[in-house]
């Protein structure tokens, strides 16, 4: 499902959660939505899912406004960290609600996911641990098979094996049933390989929307003897450095030209891709400090 956002504003009292946000997603991909705490990620997803009406601006999902549009909202699923399920009911009742209310619900897949995440249908939601509640959200999100499925920090409480199980399931189900996923997360490096495009927002405004590969191409990791690395990066924008013994790895922002690449190789330095997280930190810090990129 395509998403078109034009000059979107969402105001809470005298605070602008979204401040003239505009971007366009073609759909049919896995999108990463990144931003610092309070950057407006949850507000944006809430408006896309018609959980909230925007203060002004326009949101179009497949060309139509989602708010109170039955044909559109029935194709959207937003899973939030807080979970939108009945706390005092059993897990079985949560699945029953999905079956009764969601248009594309897949009961067999939901059962399979429950087994994978070791959730019992007999347990009450309020008795689940934080990680199990997150896993239940993942089950609902994936089994909804909604053409636009969004996860908002919805797997933070899960342990590492469960999170990796989620990534595997997400990728497998996306391959079998292609649709649009938007994933908002702070665990950037863990999920970075899933993202086909990345949207970064800060203080309710768009910082960047780019394909993941192109974004990674905005930086380079230079590894080699510490003194050689220091000399090489002296005139470059360094995002981060790590030293292990005499070896140093520096992450630099910006593409290297052919001359610089040749010089690095001649100096015995290794050049590698940059971590998305380092770029994210740099870009959002630059935004906060008002640095023009």
């Amino acid at each position: 499902m395509s998403i078109e956002v034009r000059d979107l504003r969402l105001r809470f009292g005298d605070v602008d959660a979204l401040d003239g946000l505009s971007f366009s997603l073609a759909g049919g991909k896995i999108y990463g939505l990144l931003g610092r705490n309070g950057s407006g990620k949850t507000s944006l997803l809430s408006v896309l899912a018609a959980f909230r009406r925007p203060t002004s601006g326009e949101v179009l999902i497949n060309g139509a406004e989602p708010f109170e549009n039955a044909g559109v909202v029935s194709q959207i699923c937003l899973i939030r960290e807080s979970g939108d399920v009945y706390d005092n009911e059993r897990v079985a009742s949560v699945l029953r609600a999905g079956r009764q209310l969601r248009r594309d619900w897949d009961s067999d897949y939901a059962e399979k996911l429950l087994e994978r995440f070791q959730l019992s249908t007999k347990k009450r939601v309020q008795s689940l641990s934080r990680g199990q509640k997150s896993a239940l959200g993942i089950v609902v999100g994936l089994a909804s098979r909604a053409p636009l499925t969004m996860f908002d920090e919805s797997y933070l409480g899960m342990d590492a094996p469960s999170r990796y199980a989620f990534y595997e399931e997400l990728l497998a189900d996306y391959t079998a049933h292609p649709r649009t996923f938007v994933i908002s997360t702070h665990l950037i490096e863990e999920v970075a390989s899933l993202f086909e495009e990345v949207i970064i927002i800060d203080r309710g405004r768009l910082v960047l929307h780019e394909e993941s590969d192109a974004l990674r191409g905005r930086g380079v990791t230079v590894t080699g003897p510490a003194d050689v690395v220091d000399t090489f990066v002296a005139s470059l924008t360094v995002l981060g450095q790590q030293t292990l013994g005499r070896t140093k790895a520096a992450t630099i922002y910006g593409e290297l030209n052919d001359t610089q690449v040749r010089a690095a190789k001649l100096a015995g330095l290794e050049l590698g891709p940059v971590a998305l997280q380092d770029l994210f930190v740099h870009l959002t810090r630059a935004e906060a400090e008002g640095i023009v990129r």
Binding site: E68, A70, V73, S74, C77, L78, A97, L101, S144, A146
Partner: peptide, 16 residues
């Protein structure tokens, strides 16, 4: 207070 959020979050309009 209990059902409204769950039902709307499940892709149902407020009118419905």
């Amino acid at each position: 207070t209990v059902n409204l959020t769950v039902v709307i979050a499940s892709g149902i309009t407020r009118r419905a």
